[in-house]
């Protein structure tokens, strides 16, 4: 029997990380947190992950950079990423800057709908099992 699915939560807001950690933790997922793209990369290297939630409107564009790095590296590109943002404009810019990189597996806008994100997480983490 495999252990709980591990999810990395990337957001520059401590409160939002705490929120998602509690929400996903209550559903039996194990969570790790990172406050920016750099820290996220360290967490990715440190251990196996089943999914990542990523805020792309963090300072210094580090979210977008992190996404690119993940999706262009054979070691990590199969880890599903759910992009979370409050700015639809940022998301459009993000999509158009995404040359040669696949689309994120999921997209959730802030304020977060709990059922929506939990459904997405469940679907995406189960896909990895097959």
């Amino acid at each position: 029997m495999a252990g709980p699915k591990r999810i990395l939560i990337v957001d520059d807001e401590q409160d939002i990380r705490t929120y998602l950690s509690a929400l996903l933790g209550d559903q039996g997922y194990e969570t790790v947190q990172a406050k920016d793209g750099e820290e996220a990369m360290q967490k990715v290297q440190a251990g196996p992950l089943d999914l990542i939630t990523l805020d792309i409107s963090m300072p210094e564009k580090s979210g977008i950079k992190f996404f690119r790095e993940m999706k262009t590296d054979d070691r990590w590109k199969n880890i599903p990423i759910i992009v979370v943002t409050g700015v639809s404009e940022d998301f459009k810019k993000f999509i158009s800057s995404r040359h040669q990189v696949p689309a994120p597996e999921g997209f959730v806008s802030k304020p977060i709908n709990q059922e929506e994100i939990l459904d997405l997480v469940q679907i995406l983490t189960q896909q990895g099992n097959s």
């Binding site: 807001e13 409160d15 929120y19 998602l20 509690a22 806008s109 304020p111 977060i112």
Partner: peptide
Amino acid sequence: IGSISHGIKGLLTSLDGGVYL
């Protein structure tokens, strides 16, 4: 208005988080 709406969305998410906890 764009920048306020972004700020408010973030704050609402954090408030939701507080209410959830």
